[in-house]
């Protein structure tokens, strides 16, 4: 019986090696594991950090101010005294870190290049080698349209789409979802940092942190019916994704309150903010509220009135998923302004 076989010599050696590695890292700073159900951790903290001067006199964001805002937000999220400490808690030298951006909206409404550069700078300061960092989305051409430069050379931060490496052959499934995963996730990533954009979505209601994981699977088109519910939650439950996700940094420098996910200038606004959390459900809940406030300000109906309530957020919080909390009483919202 295969299941009852005794450990082979190879298994034994492998286990010993794993144990040795475990001992070797035991005295290093403890890295955070993938986000655990917040029910066991108390409140989920969400930081909104805003800098009205982010753009100075121009239209583009100032890279230095973005870095400063990121540091400020991360220190508030982790109660850290210096800007590097939060990153040291999340990653270890030698790990491969993938920064999943969102570039569907082209230059107008994609993850900001300066923000991603700031993240990469801090990751390197925490000991991650440049070549072990990959900035990615589903398609290299989309990355370029959003302003990123595709890079695959040695000793530099990598940047390319899944189109360069493809998807795993095997299906993974959870609940209603069965998909192939990007090889960037499965083969080039120990730690996943999610950097979505704050935006309205014509089908899902909103597209923020949870929905950005659609860019990891090969068949997102299959999971848009019914307002993407329960598909978004199910995709985020895939162990290969969940076990790697450490942090969500929502780019709300330019956001979208209507007509998303593509960029339509008349529906975009400059929020000049970052929304950061380790709990994607809490982040999406706060992001959704932010979009609703802007919609009200613009005289638009609520998403519920348009039958576009992002129900998948509640599903992600339910007992079957426990990806985070959507209960305002259990979300600690920290609003802060960068200098």
């Amino acid at each position: 019986m295969r299941n009852e076989r005794t450990a082979s010599r190879r298994d034994f050696l492998r286990n010993c090696l794993a144990g040795a590695v475990g001992l070797a890292v035991a005295d290093q700073p403890v890295a955070l594991d993938a986000a655990e159900p917040v029910t066991s951790l108390g409140k989920s903290r969400v930081v909104i950090a805003q800098d009205a001067q982010m753009r100075g006199a121009g239209t583009g964001v100032d890279g230095g101010r973005v870095l400063s805002l990121l540091d400020h937000a991360m220190q508030r999220l982790f109660n850290a005294r210096d800007p590097i400490q939060p990153w040291i808690r999340m990653v270890r030298p030698g790990q491969m870190v993938a920064v999943k951006v969102n570039t569907l909206g082209g230059r107008g409404l994609s993850t900001n290049v300066q923000l991603v550069e700031a993240i990469c700078e801090r990751l390197q300061a925490a000991g991650i080698r440049a070549q072990d960092i990959v900035i990615w989305d589903r398609d290299s051409a989309e990355l370029e349209r959003a302003g990123f430069r595709v890079r695959t050379g040695a000793s530099q931060v990598q940047c390319f789409g899944t189109d360069r490496v493809g998807f795993e052959e095997d299906l993974v499934s959870y609940g209603s979802v069965g998909s192939r995963l990007s090889k960037i996730l499965t083969q080039r990533c120990d730690v996943l940092i999610n950097v979505p954009v704050l935006k309205d979505h014509d089908g899902a209601g909103v597209s923020i942190a949870l929905k950005n994981m659609y860019g990891v699977i090969h068949n997102p088109n299959k999971y848009h019916p019914n307002g993407c519910d329960p598909y978004v939650a199910d995709v985020n439950m895939l162990p290969e994704i969940r076990s790697r996700l450490r942090l969500h940094i929502c780019d709300a420098t330019t956001a979208c309150f209507e007509g998303g996910p593509a960029f339509k200038p008349q529906f975009a606004w400059q929020q000049n903010a970052l929304i950061i959390s380790q709990d994607p459900v809490a982040l999406d809940t706060i992001g959704w509220q932010t979009i609703e406030r802007k919609r009200a300000e613009k005289g638009l109906k609520t998403l519920a009135a348009e039958d576009r309530t992002p129900r998948y957020i509640a599903t992600a919080a339910d007992a079957d998923h426990q990806l985070g909390t959507n209960d305002p009483r259990r979300i600690e919202l920290v609003e802060t302004r960068g200098s």
Binding site: G106, D202, G203, N221, K222
Partner: peptide
């Protein structure tokens, strides 16, 4: 019959 309503830059269910 699905009658996908498809936003700019997006694809229908068929992909």
């Amino acid at each position: 019959p699905r009658e996908c309503a498809v936003g700019d830059r997006e694809r229908g269910y068929c992909g």
